[in-house]
Design a protein around this nucleic acid. Structure first.
Lengths: 190, 190, 190, 190
DNA sequence: CATGAATGAGTGTTCATTCAT
DNA sequence: AATGAATGAACACTCATTCAT
């Protein structure tokens, strides 16, 4: 028996991601993915149950990679503000280094193709930031508001900025990123 | 193009919007739209060049309606803060009263099907808010930052909140909305 | 608007029938039918809901044509035996003149693709023979047995004979046909 | 071909038979058979040349089993009529005890997938009945007609009855079976 | 202006079969 | 002998669009 070719799986993921950000989900067909990955359409069905399953698993894998990068070793010695800024910088760095992965995630985020199980799972990936926020609340540095709500002014403006820049083929500006991080802090801090 | 039957156009728009939010763009076919609108597929091609054109025009029309509602008569007698809060309340009200229109706009926002001309045009609809911000800046109530950037912490967190609530079939909470408006103001004010 | 082309429907029916008797139902694909009928696969879906619907409607139409031919004007003046023999001769004649239609019906007869509604409907087509049998029973010429049961020794041996001959590419023999008709009468008569 | 594992062959046969009567030939794929038999698709190609070969060999094997059961020890002491009735009862008994095997045989009987060699071979299985008929003819109990023709009124009506009952999920009735055996005898006897 | 008929090209998925181990 | 991986070709069906009326 032949053994599963890990490279093939990687190729399928990569082709899917590229197609979705280039042409949109509704133009991304299995046969295009197969062509892009250099495999037969039938091969995709060895690795995934169906198209939906492929998209969901890819989404999960990208989100995991993303949060692994962003939340690597948070220094407990640092102040909450320092923690906050570091995470935001990592977040920005990841997006700039992984434009296509970021755009992929943003495009799929609110689409019915993603199962709620997958969405729940990915939300948990951001737990480290939650911990920092709770520490800030207990230290009375951050407003005492449900952390789920606090996440919104933290990540949404910055994400939207990157999206806008990428969609108009402009490079995100360091100065603006810093401003947005500061505004986010202004928003949530006491 | 001369339009004979305004009602037909309305039906096509309505059917398209419903289908897109119910089943997603990639399940929304011309023939389904035609069936939903009670017209022939061929009729749609009298009103629009092609599917893309239909989607773009619908997007534009919804955005226009939205901004018309939100920015109706801004009172120059009021303070900048009052203006700001009023606009944000209108914005929230519109979304709650027009859930499907809002979700439609959000779903399409980052899709390649929208032409950049359309996106530029819709951005201009938010000019009235820009005016308020500029007044605030000159009065040294609001931080002196490019208004385009200021828009991000203002609208993104609130929009994201509504999306999350709607997608998980929960009603948006008045208290949370007020908090988010306040956080937005904290973010941009001096 | 174009009007439906009756010739196209005829072509689709004919192509389907030929394919099924030549290659069997499980080799008869929509695209082969389309090719055979000189239309696009999509066109078939204008005339029929799906493949199953096409097969069922074709089956119904052939059975109808068949029974219309066989049971045309049964002479009430004649004896039951004369009626019986005439019907059997017509039956044999139809089969010999319409080999492909007969084989089509025989091949589909016991397949799950036929809905029970269709089978019920086609059974009713043989009502005229039932009338003759009932007359024979009341005249004490034919055994007093449920007509549904009587149908079996009447039609099954003859049908099987034709099938065997056609499948081995031999012409059915007049003498054998007459013998089988006689045996059928021997079977059911008192 | 040397067969290592007799159990595997049995499983493949059984899975094929079940699938064909449950879902029909055109829904019965090699991979479904493999799954049902608990083997790899590739394994099936060790035992059989291809799908057609598998179906033909299975058909042959079922027919053989069937005739072995029906024609076991025909008593030469008994009259022809007794021999006839006994065979018919065995035939009926087998069908009732082996509903799925019977339906499988009937479903395939007139399909192009069966090779003519196979069909010829299976016909020979019914030679014992032929012997009885010939004895009856020489004793002038049975009409002097080609035995191949005599087979038709003997087996066809009864088979058709069982098919009808099974297909409409009704149990065959003992009384009807006996009537049909009697009608068959009426048909062929002098 | 408006229509339903018509279509070639495409969809996601499964097929019978072969390959490499 | 036996396997799961792999595949090109096919499947039933739908697509966005155009045609003829």
């Amino acid at each position: 028996m032949r053994i599963k070719d890990e490279k093939k799986l990687e190729n399928i993921y990569e082709a899917t991601l590229q197609l979705i950000i280039d042409e949109g989900l509704h133009q991304t067909s299995i046969s295009k993915i197969a062509k892009g990955a250099g495999v037969s359409p039938a091969t995709i069905y060895i690795y995934f149950e169906n198209k939906e399953d492929l998209i969901n698993k890819l989404y999960l894998s990208v989100k995991k990679e993303m949060s692994d990068y962003i939340f690597v070793k948070i220094d407990n010695q640092q102040t909450v503000h320092e923690n906050f800024v570091n995470i935001m910088k990592k977040f920005s760095q990841y997006i700039q280094d992984n434009k296509s992965r970021f755009l992929f995630v943003e495009q799929l985020q609110n689409m019915p193709i993603l199962s709620s199980e997958i969405l729940d799972q990915t939300n948990q990936y951001f737990y480290p930031m939650e911990k920092v926020l709770k520490k800030g609340i207990s230290e009375q540095v951050i407003k005492d508001i449900d952390t789920k709500i606090l996440f919104l002014p933290i990540f949404q403006p910055l994400s939207a900025y990157f999206k806008e820049q990428f969609n108009s083929d402009e490079r995100p500006k360091k100065a603006v990123i810093n401003i947005l991080i500061e505004l986010a802090w202004n928003s949530i801090s006491i």
